[in-house]
Structure formats: structure tokens, C-alpha cells
Design a protein around this nucleic acid. Structure first.
Lengths: 110, 110
DNA sequence: CAGATTAATCGTACTTTTACGATGAATAAG
DNA sequence: CTTATTCATCGTAAAAGTACGATTAATCTG
């Protein structure tokens, strides 16, 4: 990237970008869907569903967790993940807020 | 990336991920805000506002255009960009649809 | 036509992301 | 206690992303 200029932008812009980055990979979207669809928390089942190696899935989970979108707790030899609905709701609002902001002036000249 | 596994996921997942990727950088979020805030189409003004070099801004614009989020037309020696509201609305809906899908079963066990 | 302006593209450098296999740590099962 | 299971982490490799300066192409201006 040659020295990230991220810090030069507003906090809001950085937040939205970070959230978008978290879901900017089909594997992570798929993981979220799996987590949302199960009643109980899942872990290795995700690996079975996705066309990726275990280590790669673990990496994606780590990123989702770092973004605050999911929670993870250790349950014996296995890890239990689930969606952090609070954070999700927050981002949903932030997203719609961005959309609203953009659409206040709906002028398309080209 | 070592051979992208993108193709192994559903089209919807790919679409959402691609859109998220487009706004997964604060500079691109900022660009969209600038475009939305102006009545007339802008081009080089974006460079003045952002803390980035002209070539870098041009690159970001290219990505936004490739994602279908903005339109661009050449106007003499300068280029005129503006938001593709139709695509934006589409993605807004797709996004809310994803949120809804995820929140159908709101079970958090951890 | 000559020079200035605007913006795309090229070349380059460096960082980050994506992906895998292998290893390691923790716990469950025998 | 030994073995199997589950998952995180490490090391590595390759691809993509980010950023810049320089160059180029197009078009205005004088």
C-alpha cells in the first residue's frame, strides 16, 4: 500500500470502510449467513460448508471478530462463534445513514 | 491470495462482497460524499479535497466506476463523474436484504 | 501553432489480503 | 496415560490493493 493514508480521513469514513472491508469477501458473507442460520453456535461446521481450508476459515473468523461483527468463546476443544447483533445493528444504521446522506441531493448530470 | 476462491461462492455473496469492497476504503467513501454533495458533476475538485495524489484519486474513481457505483463522461479536457443512483439503490436494497436475512433468527448464544 | 491544463495510464514500490499445509495447544475419549 | 479431535497460529507463497511520480493524450487558451 506504500504508507496507508487511512488516518487522513474522518472517523466515520474509516468506520464505514472498515465494516465494508469485513464483509468484502464472499467467504465472510457466507460465514455470517451460516452463523445466522444456526440455532446453536457453530464452529467447525463452517469449514464443512465452505470450500476453504480450516486455517483459512479460521483466518476469516478472526477478521470478522476483529471487526466486531461476531463473538467467539472457547468451549472445550472447540470454539463457538455467533453474530454480535448489537454491532450489526449499529453498522446497519450507519450504512443507511450513509445512503441517506448521499441521497439527500439526488443530482445526476451524467 | 494464491488462487482466488471467489468463484466457489454464490452470485449474491459475490455481488455483496464486490460492492462492499468498492466502499471498503475511506477515500472512496469520501469521494462518494463529494459527488453527492455537488450539484454539478465534479472531477479534479475531488483531488483538491482529498489528501491524495491525482493519480491515486483517478485510480479510486476507476474502481468505483468498475463497481458500477459512479458514471463518468469526458467533457473536453476534464472528466465529469457522478453517482449512479440506480445502482446505488439496488445495492442499498441488497444490503438491507442481507441484514434482514441475517436477522431472521436472532440467536446469540455467546 | 505553442503552451497550459486536465486527467488517464504506466511503471514502480511496498503493504495487505488470501490461501494452504504444518505445527502446536487444549481438551475429550478410550 | 495415550490417542484422537478441534481449532488457532506460524510460515510461506502468490495475488491484489494502495500510493506516488512521470509520462502521455486530449483539449482548451493565447
Amino acid at each position: 500500500m506504500a504508507i496507508a493514508k487511512t488516518a487522513a480521513f474522518s472517523k466515520k469514513e474509516q468506520e464505514i470502510a472498515a465494516f465494508a472491508k469485513a464483509i468484502a469477501h464472499p467467504a465472510r458473507v457466507a460465514i455470517l449467513k451460516v452463523l445466522a442460520g444456526k440455532t446453536e453456535c457453530v464452529c467447525g461446521q463452517i469449514v464443512d460448508v465452505l470450500p476453504l481450508a480450516q486455517s483459512t476459515v479460521s483466518q476469516h473468523l478472526k477478521e470478522l471478530k476483529a471487526a466486531g461483527l461476531i463473538n467467539g468463546t472457547v468451549e472445550g476443544p472447540r470454539s463457538c462463534y455467533c453474530i454480535n447483533w448489537k454491532a450489526f445493528e449499529k453498522f446497519r444504521n450507519e450504512f443507511n445513514s450513509l445512503f441517506d446522506t448521499l441521497q439527500v441531493k439526488n443530482n445526476s448530470c451524467c
